[in-house]
Design a protein around this nucleic acid. Structure first.
Lengths: 189, 189
DNA sequence: TTTATTATGTAGACCAATTGTTATAAAAGT
DNA sequence: ACTTTTATAACAATTGGTCTACATAATAAA
């Protein structure tokens, strides 16, 4: 699992990175196989349905990473507001360190792009957002918030986070993320 | 100006619609010229630098529309919170009426996509967000808010709005927009 | 007023390059 | 021997872009 090339994993890693930074249509299969040093034969061996199956796998794989990471913050000792703030600020830190090229896999603007490709992809992207919201909503409810309010606030948090990422990536500046983090307490109050 | 075909305007209208719903790379020039009933010769006559010049024109054109529409709401009689709420809810209404295909030109996720294409495009997209924020920040300052706070809150509002659009488009559901509107008073307080 | 001349657009065939995809055969690993 | 994986070559389709021929309209010269 270490020194062997392991084409499948290499392809998935590279494809995820490229899809989530450049976009679905902007990323060609040729670039993926070249960047991952994997042969094209392997790509269609592991993903017989081609590009769409590949991006679907990337999305699902990413979805789990996202849930896990978010849970790490939200299910800790801190208050919900503190936890979400820390999560967003850790993204801002990561963004700066990687010169706005490593926000993968949290900038999910590619969801809208792939939603136009097929219904299967749209459903998968919906689930990602849903999982994300659930983690936050569950925590809010555990703190005594009514379900309806918790779901609403969780949606707002996810929307704000995604939007702030959108602006941060476009402007190459963490300010939107910092401002978003600062406004979290007011939102969750 | 009415019965004559006016290829330039037809191309811009169609291109804007397609770029902002499908994305930059997903929209081919052939589709644009077919949907707008304009010949390819005209496209390169009016936009000699091709696709990039075309999308740049679409973005700038849209930028002005956005500023104008937002100003209409924000510079009215209502309180800032009321104004922004009305603006977002009007988007939600428009989204439902058009079955989530007419959110153009407010869903600006295409900004991240085009930002990868060239620095010129990234700068243009930055300006769009900047204008948008300025309209809100100016209004907040007129109501007595400190500049620093006003700019921060304006950024949050724009981020939240863009993120809510992202979720709404992906889930084909206005709930994120409604939830965003509801949280505006708490954010601007 | 008629005739030339020059812009202004239109129309679409055509191009090289690249897209995603398939087929087939050679290896490698067990 | 047999499955798994790799390595290419070729595929049709489409991409953004170029090119030339053509029509129309405006202006100038006769």
């Amino acid at each position: 699992m270490s020194n062997k090339h392991n084409a499948r994993e290499a392809i998935l890693d590279t494809a995820s990175r490229l899809f989530f930074t450049q976009g679905y249509h902007a990323t060609g299969l040729n670039q993926i196989i070249k960047d991952s040093d994997s042969p094209k034969g392997s790509l269609y061996y592991y993903f017989p349905h081609g590009k769409e199956e590949l991006v679907l796998t990337c999305i699902n794989r990413t979805s789990e990473m996202v849930s896990q990471n978010l849970r790490h913050y939200v299910e800790g000792e801190d208050s919900p507001a503190q936890a979400v703030q820390n999560f967003i600020l850790s993204m801002a830190r990561e963004a700066e360190e990687s010169s706005f090229e490593g926000l993968v896999p949290f900038s999910f603007w590619v969801a809208v792009e792939t939603s136009c490709v097929s219904n299967e992809l749209r459903t998968a992207c919906q689930c990602v957002f849903k999982d994300w919201q659930d983690v936050i909503a569950q925590r809010l409810m555990k703190d005594g918030m009514q379900e309806e309010a918790a779901v609403g606030k969780a949606t707002v948090v996810v929307s704000l986070f995604e939007g702030a990422l959108l602006l941060a990536l476009t402007c190459r500046n963490v300010q939107p993320l910092v401002a978003a983090a600062e406004s979290i307490p007011a939102i969750l109050a």
